[in-house]
Amino acid sequence: MERIRIVAAVASLLLVGQSVRSVRREHIRVEYSMAWLGAALLLLVLCLSDAAVAAVGRLLGVRDAALVILTLAGVLLLFLFLRYSIVVSSLKDHNIQLAQKVGMLEWEIERLNKQAESKQDAEKPGGAGGSAAGA
């Protein structure tokens, strides 16, 4: 077996191990580990199976097994980066909406507190009665 295939196989196994470990420790959610696991397993199959490498090589028009593995690994990585860019963008959008909502709700709570305070002041015998804040 070519050295590059051994290195790639070991890297795939490490990736599978690290993904499982991260899921167990709740560093990665299961749904986000699936893409890494899928990519690692696919790479592992390619490293171990001559027939699979030959088939993909024919598809890409490449004879060299090492080049096939590297090309596929590169393409997989690009797709994974794209997928996680979409996930991060979506999370950022949600985060912005939540932060805006939190700010507005805090303003509302403060307004209600001031209203309640001024109502209490007004109800006290001889109370001055403050002005309610609010737009």
Partner: peptide, 20 residues
Amino acid sequence: ELLRLPHHLGLGGAVQTGYR
């Protein structure tokens, strides 16, 4: 009147908060 955002969103995020 003061509307405090829980963390830094950037200019667009702050302006949009005001518009919303």
